[in-house]
Design a protein around this nucleic acid. Structure first.
Length: 611
RNA sequence: GACUUGGUAGCUCAGCAGGUAGAGCACAUCCCUUUUAAGGAUGGGGUCCUGGGUUCGAGCCCCAGCCAAGUCACCA
């Protein structure tokens, strides 16, 4: 490692950064103008940035920084063998500092953990010049800055594994203060918890809340585990269009967009089902896709407008076979993530150990209501539904009633993973009719923690039946069901070509991630959940009108800060008051420009009246 | 979409009956050689979400709006 990138030699004053002097000068002016709107802490940091540059230190060096160890490894291994790590180099963000005269402690955080640093003035600055320690380290560095350090590991008197720093290098100066979260013996103080702030500024959340990072690592491992299972089984991972001329495969409202060259409306996909089935028609026997789907519907802690779904289609199989696959795959995921089939989520411990309970929908309803509704006709079923407090109306057929009763009385009670099978045909236009039970389809959902986590069926491959089902959906659409499916002629053509009997599965990756990471809301397993856009900050006027009136450019932002966003605003102003305001701001902001003269300000106000 | 709660310093939060806007951490200045959320001292920092209204006076009361969270509804 080149020693020159460290240490006092890097800011040798005899080699100032003359080449960039001009740029620096311009930059400072911009910074000065910007700083009028900045908080005091942000201004201090910009000030520190200048001072670093004055010392010849590049706060944003171009070259990389060679790291030879990660914090986690030191913390895990060093206590067992104190002879290790006698020349380490690592980098991270400063998360805390405790400065006491000529010795200091700091904490830096890399991707893996936080580790304490010890700095001693006379080791950081062996010669006479103590600037690198006294000025650069103590005064010009802040929490949030990123540095690289080199030194050896030791244990402090307090018993904490610490890096004794011999040299350090600034890798990035941070201009915004970070929320400061402190922790002692597992207790967290001043936690950064406001969900809005956390989701809008996820980078801050990730920096100060290490457990958040852990959730996303687990999510990634979950997907890795699932993908591994499917690839091992020999299925092909594919990609299908997000932009679709006709949306289908689910009952949901789409997002609509427009392609200029084709001069046509396109929709963002709500499911990839119809495309994956075309691939089964085409002769692939097993295809799957991890897909972002988009549904233009309400948002809640279980719904985000874009979400991830894994869909799998396997030829020559049926829904019974698919149930076994789901059990096996999800059990494997639980073990890969937690080392056991048991997963704690909220107040419940969920056990994914096979086999899971299996109920038909009728059985589930009988189990939770004590009534067997399988033989009821629509009228008596409606009466039964009303009797247990469900609102009904005449548009609801038998299938919808069954679904309502199940949703109201059963779903929330199913905490342990449970398969619910054999759904009413009306709700499932893409599923094959049940081999033995009229009016039902061969479909199952897995319910876990009171929520659906997957949906699967023996796929309908009878093209005549499929066309009829689509036409029923069209009828629903005409009656005002905004989520009814549209008829996809191209898909029907594919089915008419002949699709083998096929089992299909859709599994909600976000929902499963919530359970596997013990997260209460979908926003906690998405890096950037959809949020309402922040109110546009009041449109900043350019200030051109001030300049046209001959007011010096340097005073424009100050005038705006003083409450005169544009020239017109000066018309009514008292010139003496404006003069006082400008002088006050000049002092407050420590602006490096001469104060205006009263008559100058008076002339500006006059000009504003003329214009 | 309905209801409830909330929005005050960079962060976490107080604030009252309507009377000069507060604390802790962070920040700044000074002192201090191994500290542990946190050494000591001093100090700076605010669009009290926005806009109206009531009032001599509004962070607080009223109206409207914006944003968020929770519950419910919708979501095969």
């Amino acid at each position: 490692m080149d020693p020159k990138i460290f240490n006092a030699s890097t800011f040798d004053r005899s080699s100032p950064v003359t080449t960039s002097f001009f740029i620096t000068f311009a930059l400072r002016k911009i910074i000065m103008i910007m700083s009028i709107q900045l908080s005091e802490q942000e201004q201090f940091r910009r000030q520190a940035l200048h001072e670093l540059m004055d010392l010849g230190v590049d706060p944003y060096p171009a070259e990389g920084f060679a790291v030879n160890v990660i914090a986690r490894e030191i913390l895990d291994t060093f206590p067992g063998d104190n002879s290790l790590y006698q020349d380490v180099s690592l980098a991270g963000r400063i998360m805390g500092r405790r400065i006491m005269g000529s010795a200091s402690f700091a904490v830096i955080q890399d991707d893996t953990a936080r580790i304490q640093l010890y700095f001693n003035r006379d080791e950081i600055c062996p010669g006479e010049d103590k600037t690198w320690y006294n000025t650069v380290f103590k005064r010009l560095l802040d929490i949030g800055d990123i540095i690289g350090v080199r030194g050896h590991v030791f244990t402090t008197q307090m018993g904490e594994t610490t890096i004794h720093v011999k040299e350090f290098k600034i890798l990035c100066k941070s201009l915004r203060p970070l929320p400061v979260v402190k922790e002692k013996e597992g207790k967290v103080f001043d936690a950064f918890t406001d969900p809005e702030q956390r989701y809008r500024n996820r980078y801050q959340d990730l920096i100060v809340n290490p457990h958040v990072k852990q959730v996303f690592r687990q999510r990634a491992r979950m997907i890795e585990s699932m993908r591994g299972y499917l690839l091992d089984a020999g299925y092909l991972e594919v990609e299908t269009p997000v932009l679709q001329p006709i949306y289908g495969g689910a009952a949901a409202r789409p997002f609509k967009t427009f392609h200029n060259t084709l001069n046509t409306t396109l929709y963002l996909r709500i499911a990839d089902e119809l495309y994956l089935k075309r691939l089964i028609v085409g002769g692939f026997d097993g295809v799957f896709e991890f897909a972002k789907d988009f549904r233009n519907e309400g948002m809640s802690r279980f719904h985000n407008p874009e979400f991830t779904m894994m869909e799998l289609y396997v030829a020559y199989k049926d829904y019974l076979w698919m149930m076994d696959l789901v059990e096996e795959m999800v059990e494997k995921i639980a073990i890969d993530l937690h080392g056991t089939t048991k997963v704690q989520t909220g107040d419940h411990e969920i056990d994914f150990k096979r086999p899971w309970k299996r109920y038909t929908m009728y059985e589930a309803i009988e189990h939770f209501t004590g009534t067997d509704i399988s033989e009821m006709d629509e009228a008596s079923m409606r009466q039964f539904a009303e009797g247990i407090g469900i609102e009904t109306d005449n548009t609801m057929g038998r299938g919808k009633l069954i679904d309502e009763i199940f949703g109201e009385k059963c779903e929330e009670h199913l905490i342990q993973p449970t398969f619910i099978t054999d759904y009413p045909v009306e709700m499932s236009p893409l599923a094959k009719k049940h081999r033995s039970k009229p009016g039902l389809v061969e479909r199952f959902e897995a319910i876990c923690n009171g929520k659906e986590i997957c949906n699967a069926f023996s796929e309908l491959n009878d093209p005549i039946d499929q066309r009829a089902r689509f036409e029923e959906q069209l009828e629903l659409g005409k009656r005002g069901d905004t989520e009814a499916m549209v008829l996809d002629e191209d898909f029907l053509r594919a089915i008419e070509t002949g699709m083998p009997p096929t089992a299909g599965l859709g599994i909600g990756i976000d929902r499963l991630a919530m359970i596997m990471t013990n997260s209460a809301s979908i926003q906690d397993v998405l890096f950037f959940p959809q949020m309402r856009p922040e109110a546009a900050s009041a449109a900043k006027t350019t200030g051109d009108d001030f300049i046209r009136a001959g007011i010096p450019e340097v005073w424009v932002p100050v005038l705006q800060q003083a409450g005169y966003p544009e020239l017109n605003a000066l018309q009514e102003a008292n010139a003496n008051k404006v003069f006082n305001q400008l002088c006050g701001l000049r002092k407050k902001m420590k602006l490096d420009i001469p104060a205006p003269k009263p008559e100058e300000v008076r002339s500006w106000v006059e000009k504003s009246k003329i214009s």
